[in-house]
Design a protein around this nucleic acid. Structure first.
Lengths: 344, 344
DNA sequence: CAATCAATGACAACCGATTGCCAAAAATTG
DNA sequence: CAATTTTTGGCAATCGGTTGTCATTGATTG
């Protein structure tokens, strides 16, 4: 009944190839992974046989015997946050190019889930890339000591990292607002566990003092559009004329809420977002935001990680990269309203 | 110098547990995976030891010896397409709940990449979920015959599938437009390789005939916002007063282009999208679109797949689910313009 | 032409589990 | 209390590779 021609139906192994070529399995293994260790003629025979049998190495077996899994875990706090789309694509492309598999995990903004995941990945991945880690500095450092790890947007001494330089862009944003005449400005803070938010606030507070304007901090708010409503209300209540939001999600949510309340952007209130996510260019009004090469950040993170995994020539691998960020001005920022409360 | 207390530093194996309890490794294996096969007292001792040693089973070893990988591949044509965000989250959550790992792969809209990936996943995953497959019917059927597979939005007899019922929503959309007075309508087609697009057009053409209105097909267009410009131009040139777009990305792109060209939506042109992706509610104007429970679709796909993998009790598992879809009316659709060309 | 050495490939142990088979121990039955 | 059945747990093979060790081969050299 077998429609199959000669040859077994199950996937070929190195043993099948070995038998076909009349050599030992170990020779096949070497021919395929350490080509120099085997005579070129033997190697060619083996390669031909492998092709003929449509041989695919069994990743599990490879991992078990060699200890290397050819997989890299990528942890993000929230898959549905558009910010991570490009990041994920960047890591995915770069990893695939290097022959690695990406294990993507949504840690649901939870440090516990994150810790558990890191723990599990210890043996099923060669390394880990953690975006916007919610772990404590100590926990992150400990994790990095145990296995190759690269953090994205998390600056802990001793932990290799790719940092997106939003703090400096935040200063640009402030300059932009100041040049438009705003003097009372709010920073809409992100989660307290987000180091990005903390660093950005620090940069902003410093810059504000230099420029002699008032910047107050509101929040924290969850990095979701839904939080934008509360943020908008808080901003209005605080009497500021411009806001710099933790990220575009919150900023877009604010835009929606302000519209609902009948306030005009940017006439009554200017809004600056961060990340230039999908949607920032077509929301209403289009969002002024801090843009950065996110996909590239993902690629760089992979490169840094792979450099750790394969410490080949040129030992001087840097393990900390800073990605530039710039302000993209769109329609959500404009001149400060004339009749501001501060006159009274 | 070792700060570590007694006990090795490397991860514990079943052998460590076995030694600690004075039993054989096989007993440990059974205690952990087939609890009934082992005396309850022995089991408890083993469990205690496992906990004490912080034992984590080695997934690779498990996979190698048992043949089951506890991993499921999820293939999407384009990770950065927001449509897939919720889908991915749905599969991720459901898979995690069932103890499976999700292997996410971006097939880059390419049937070749998709075929290669399916081939590679054959041994490193227990099953596959393919969203919007670009494979031919035959290839997909062949793949499904080789390994457990569930297709999303792809209806091929013999292939388990989760279908998002956009065709019926398309008819609703048409009714909506007709009730607003539109008589010349365009369908902005998606990729020719997309079965969704084909099925939707068939539904639309049929419904249009019933209702005695003219619907013409424009395209194909790539499912990206950038394609929206060409689509908008084509629509304007064709003289229609309303468009039903293949998906929200194209629709949003059209919105942008029409605005650039000084045309008002919905006064001059009505636009209907599809999928209700992130951004559809805050673009300008907010998009009328066909919404469906995408995350749920992902969960259902996982359920269908797991039912294949573990064909336990209640053999009557259905392997085809249809997810309902409904029209969500927002600001991008309105009454047909009075002075339409057809008067002349 | 003999001695030395690098290249080559076979053998076997090993990675960490699972699982079929079987014997010893315990429980049940007559 | 003996005979039988059921539990229980050990042994060893197996999954598909990798890798250290070692014997053989052929090439290089004195």
């Amino acid at each position: 009944m077998a429609t199959q021609a000669a040859g077994t139906d199950r996937p070929a192994t190195i043993h099948d190839i070995a038998a076909r070529c009349g050599v030992a399995a170990s020779t096949v293994s070497r021919a395929l992974s350490t080509p120099d260790r085997v005579n070129i003629r033997t190697r060619e025979r083996i390669e031909a046989a492998a092709a003929a049998l449509n041989y695919r190495p069994n990743i599990q077996a490879k991992a078990l015997s060699s200890g290397r899994t050819s997989a890299v875990g990528v942890l993000v706090p929230d898959i549905t946050n558009p910010f991570y789309f490009d990041l994920i694509r960047g890591t995915q492309l770069q990893l695939k190019a290097a022959g690695y598999t990406q294990l993507l995990v949504d840690t649901e903004e939870s440090d516990e889930v994150e810790a558990t995941t890191v723990d599990q990945l210890r043996k099923s991945a060669d390394g880990i890339i953690v975006a916007a880690s919610r772990l404590s500095d100590e926990a992150l450092l400990a994790a990095a000591a145990t296995m190759p790890l690269v953090a994205i947007n998390r600056d802990v001494p001793g932990v290799p990292a790719v940092i997106i330089d939003t703090p400096s862009a935040t200063s640009q944003a402030l300059d932009h607002l100041v040049s438009l005449g705003h003097t009372r400005i709010a920073y809409i803070a992100g989660p307290t566990t987000s180091q990005s938010s903390t660093r950005r606030w620090a940069a902003l507070a410093g810059a504000a003092e230099e420029r002699g304007v008032e910047v107050r901090r509101l929040g924290p708010f969850a990095p979701k559009t839904q939080s934008g409503a509360a943020a908008a209300d808080a901003a209005v209540h605080s009497g500021v004329t411009a806001c710099i939001a933790f990220n575009d999600l919150i900023a877009i949510g604010m835009l929606q809420r302000l519209r609902e309340r009948g306030l005009r952007v940017p006439e009554d209130m200017s809004i600056v977002g961060c990340d230039d996510i999908f949607g920032a260019d077509f929301c209403n009004p289009p969002l002024t935001t801090m843009a950065s090469p996110i996909e590239q950040a993902g690629r760089v993170a992979v490169s840094v990680l792979l450099a750790q995994l394969n410490p080949l020539a040129g030992g001087g691998t840097r393990n900390r990269s800073v990605m530039p960020t710039h302000l993209t001005v769109r329609g959500s920022t404009g001149p400060a309203p004339e009749d501001t409360v501060e006159r009274y």
